[in-house]
Amino acid sequence: MFFLDILSGVLLLVGVFFGFTGALGLFRFPDFFTRVHAASVTESIASILILTGLMLQTQFDLNTAKLIFILLFLMITSPTASHALAKSARHGGLLSIPESKKKKENS
């Protein structure tokens, strides 16, 4: 059990580090479309690591199954949400960096 505790602690701390990295990226990246990439770091790998770390803390019963379900659900919905966000930004007329460069050259 001791070994599992250490493994889960390491997973949790690494997951939190990735989460913090993503939040930093939200402030450091230049435009909206690149910031979505930074946010997706926190949404994919940080959730995987933190939820896996919590799974190792359970007695492998119903709670583990619930954690697996939360993980699966986040894996399906968070890309959907960022896709919808990027799509609506494009329809709203926001240009990404390569597109706005091209526009400047043309005008």
Binding site: T21, L24, F29, P30, F33, V41, S44, S96, I97
Partner: peptide
């Protein structure tokens, strides 16, 4: 996911951000 997360993490923590965003 692990591989590309490490790559993006390196980009975020590097002192000068070098990106080549493309569509």
């Amino acid at each position: 996911i692990v591989l590309s997360s490490v790559q993006v993490t390196r980009l975020i923590w590097s002192p000068t951000i070098k990106l080549s965003p493309s569509l």
